[in-house]
Simulated assay, not measured.
Amino acid sequence: MTQQWRCEKRRSCGGVPQEELATGERSTRNRVARSILDHGPSTVADLAGRLGLTQAAVRRHLDALVSDDVVEARQQRVYGTRTRGRPARVFALTDCGRDAFDQSYDVLAVDALRWIEENAGGEAAVAAFARDRMEAQAEAYRRAVEAADPETRTEALAKALTADGYAATARNAPVGEQLCQHHCPVAHVAERYPQLCEAETEVFSRLLGTHVQRLATIAHGDGVCTTFIPKAAHRSGDRSAGGSGRTSTTGGPARAAETTKAAGAARTAKAAKISSQASASTAGRNPA
Rank of each mutant, 00 (worst) to 15 (best):
I36P: 02
I36Y: 06
I36M: 08
I36Q: 01
D38T: 14
D38M: 07
H39S: 06
G40L: 08
G40D: 03
G40I: 04
G40T: 04
P41G: 07
P41N: 11
S42F: 01
S42T: 07
T43L: 00
V44Q: 02
L47A: 07
A48M: 11
G49V: 08
R50K: 14
L51Q: 07
L53E: 03
T54F: 05
T54L: 07
Q55S: 06
Q55L: 07
Q55G: 06
Q55I: 04
A56M: 13
A57E: 13
V58K: 10
V58P: 05
R59M: 12
R59V: 08
R60S: 10
L62W: 01
L62Q: 02
L62A: 00
D63Y: 10
D63Q: 13
A64E: 04
A64V: 09
A64N: 08
A64H: 01
L65Y: 01
L65Q: 02
S67K: 11
S67F: 13
D68L: 14
D68A: 15
D68G: 05
D68F: 00
D69R: 10
V71H: 02
E72W: 03
A73F: 12
Q75S: 12
Q75V: 15
R77L: 15
R77P: 05
R82M: 12
R82V: 08
R84Q: 14
G85Q: 09
G85W: 07
R86M: 06
R86T: 08
R86A: 06
P87Q: 12
R89G: 09
V90W: 00
F91C: 09
F91K: 00
F91S: 01
L93A: 03
L93M: 04
T94Y: 05
D95V: 11
C96D: 06
C96R: 05
G97N: 04
G97T: 01
R98I: 10
R98V: 11
F101I: 09
D102M: 12
Q103S: 11
S104A: 15
Y105G: 07
Y105P: 01
Y105L: 11
D106G: 09
D106L: 04
V107A: 11
L108I: 11
L108D: 13
L108R: 12
L108Y: 14
A109C: 10
A109H: 05
V110M: 07
V110G: 02
D111I: 06
D111M: 13
A112M: 13
A112V: 12
A112S: 13
L113T: 01
L113N: 03
R114V: 14
I116R: 03
E117P: 01
E118A: 12
E118N: 15
A120V: 05
G121M: 08
G121E: 06
G121P: 02
G122N: 12
E123S: 08
A125W: 05
V126F: 04
V126P: 00
V126S: 02
A127R: 00
A128E: 09
A128Q: 09
R131Q: 03
D132G: 09
M134V: 10
M134Q: 15
E135Y: 10
Q137I: 13
Q137D: 15
Q137M: 15
A138L: 04
A138P: 02
